[in-house]
């Protein structure tokens, strides 16, 4: 059976994740409250819906428990990101991956029990530093 993913938030990150997964034949459901982004994503994903995640009735009317992976890509809005992660967790989504924007955000999501937390700045910072160290080593 195809893996089923839900992507919450359609920024550059979310859009890219959804696009790549859809291309590799994952079943992808995307959620955002901006209709323009939803329409853009609807051209390549399985299903695209426009809703506000703070409206829990609407969010939970989606078959959330059927999803294997949930990706929460709303680093800039901590409140909404937390709400989404909580809702996905409560509805037994197999694995939750979330992107965070700062340390506090990460702490909260860790407490909630998000399986994988991506902190792009930290990750990239480390990567760039490591690259420079590698280069310096090679120079010697």
């Amino acid at each position: 059976m195809k893996k089923q993913c839900i992507v919450v938030g359609l920024g550059w990150f979310g859009m890219k994740v959804a696009m790549e997964l859809a291309e590799k034949d994952f079943e992808v459901l995307v959620v955002d409250k901006d209709m323009a982004l939803v329409e853009k994503a609807s051209k390549f994903v399985t299903k695209a819906v426009c809703l506000d995640v703070s409206n829990s009735d609407a969010f939970e009317s989606l078959p959330l428990s059927d999803f294997d992976v949930g990706i929460v890509a709303m680093a800039e809005n901590i409140a909404m990101s937390v709400v989404s992660c909580l809702t996905l967790k409560e509805n037994n989504v197999g694995k939750i991956i979330a992107k965070v924007g700062d340390k506090n955000h990460r702490k909260v999501l860790e407490k909630i029990g998000v399986d994988e937390i991506i902190f792009p700045e930290e990750y990239l910072g480390k990567m760039v530093a490591n690259k420079m160290i590698e280069e310096a080593k090679n120079m010697e």
Binding site: M35, V38, E39, S42, A48, V49, C50, L51, D52, N55, D57, A58, F59, S61, L62
Partner: peptide
Amino acid sequence: RKKSGIKYPN
């Protein structure tokens, strides 16, 4: 009666 809150792409 209940508004679902979900909108689908046009």
